[in-house]
C-alpha cells in the first residue's frame, strides 16, 4: 500500500484527509506564519456541517460572528488579505443582518483553498519539514 506521506503529495485534499498530514502541514504553515489559512478552511467546513435548527440557532450565529471577527474583519490578517472584497462584504452582510446560512463561508473557503493549492501546498511539498518526514 502507498505510504500516507506519498498520498499527501497527490492533492491538497488527500493531505487534508489525514490527521498526520494536517499536523505536519500546520507545523509548516505556523513557521510561515500563516496557520490561520488552514484553521479558517476547517472552520468553514465545520460551520457548514452544523445543521440549521431551532436548538442551535444561537450557536450558529455566535460561531458565524466568531469566524468573521477572527479571520475576516481585520483587513491585515493573512486570511482577510486573500479574500476578495465582494466576498468579504457578502459575509459581513450575512452577519449584520443575522442571515446565517450554512453556505455563507463557501466562497471565502474556495478562495483560501485555491490560494493554498497554488501557493502554500506546493511550497510545503518542497519544504525541509516534508522532505525530512519522508
Amino acid at each position: 500500500p502507498t505510504p500516507p506521506y506519498l498520498r499527501w503529495a497527490e492533492s491538497l485534499h488527500s493531505l487534508l484527509d489525514d490527521q498526520d498530514g494536517i499536523n505536519l502541514f500546520r507545523t509548516f504553515l505556523k513557521q510561515e506564519e500563516c496557520a490561520d489559512l488552514l484553521d479558517f478552511w476547517f472552520a468553514c467546513s465545520g460551520f457548514r456541517k452544523l445543521e440549521p435548527n431551532e436548538s442551535n440557532e444561537e450557536k450558529r450565529l455566535k460561531l458565524a460572528k466568531a469566524i468573521y471577527k477572527k479571520y475576516i474583519l481585520d483587513n491585515n490578517g493573512i486570511v482577510s488579505r486573500q479574500i476578495k472584497p465582494a466576498t468579504k462584504s457578502f459575509i459581513k452582510d450575512c452577519v449584520m443582518k443575522q442571515q446565517i446560512d450554512p453556505a455563507m463561508f463557501d466562497q471565502a473557503q474556495t478562495e483560501i483553498q485555491r490560494m493554498m493549492e497554488e501557493n502554500t501546498y506546493p511550497v510545503f511539498l518542497k519544504s525541509d519539514i516534508y522532505l525530512e518526514y519522508t
Binding site: F42, A43, S45, K62, L63, K69
Partner: peptide, 20 residues
C-alpha cells in the same frame, strides 16, 4: 457558556478527519 475561542476550536476540530 462557551467562549468564542472554544466555540471556534470545537468547530475546527469537528471538521477534521478522525484518527484511522
Amino acid at each position: 457558556i462557551d467562549s468564542e475561542d472554544d466555540l471556534l476550536q470545537e468547530c475546527i476540530t469537528s471538521a477534521m478527519p478522525k484518527k484511522k
